[in-house]
Computed example of a mutant assay.
Amino acid sequence: MKMEHERIPPKTPNMNAHIESFHRIFEDDCLSRWQFESYTEAYKAVTEFMVIYNERRMHSSLQDLSPMEFYEKQRTDLKIKEVRV
């Protein structure tokens, strides 16, 4: 599978709303909470945040389930909530 990198025009974050939303959550819930004194501290905080974000945090686009819960239930007849962008 070939992947193509596509850039969006400057100052148009609405064209990539999902990643912009992630960046806001990442900034608010991880980076702005701490003053890191070393790369190691920052790496540890970011790694812990990513585990929480990807495994435990509820996502509205996944019917307010965590990704792990959604993955476990995806084998049943679970309907995905429509997301309009």
Rank of each mutant, 00 (worst) to 15 (best):
S38Q: 14
V51G: 08
P13D: 03
Y71P: 05
M58P: 04
N16M: 00
R75T: 02
Y39M: 05
E20L: 14
R84D: 02
E82G: 15
D77Q: 02
W34V: 13
F49E: 04
E4P: 02
E27R: 03
R33H: 10
E6R: 04
C30A: 03
P67Y: 15
R33S: 08
N14F: 01
H23P: 00
L78N: 01
P10N: 04
F36P: 03
A17Q: 03
I52T: 09
I19P: 09
K11E: 12
A45F: 10
C30R: 11
N16T: 06
E69V: 15
V46T: 07
C30K: 04
K2Y: 08
M58F: 02
V51H: 10
E27W: 05
D28N: 07
D28R: 04
N14K: 01
Y71M: 05
L78C: 11
R24N: 06
C30L: 12
Q35C: 05
V46F: 08
I80L: 04
E82L: 11
R24P: 11
L62A: 11
L31H: 00
S60W: 03
T12Q: 13
R57C: 01
E6S: 09
S32Q: 12
S38V: 02
Y39S: 01
I19S: 10
S60Y: 00
R84K: 06
S66A: 12
T47R: 06
E37R: 12
P67T: 15
E4K: 15
V51S: 15
E4W: 12
K81E: 10
K2T: 13
K44R: 02
V85K: 09
T12S: 15
M3A: 11
L78F: 00
D64I: 05
T47G: 02
M3I: 15
Q63L: 05
T40Q: 13
E37H: 14
R7N: 11
I19E: 14
E55M: 08
S66F: 00
A45I: 12
D29T: 02
L62H: 03
E82S: 13
L31E: 11
Q35Y: 14
I19K: 00
P13G: 06
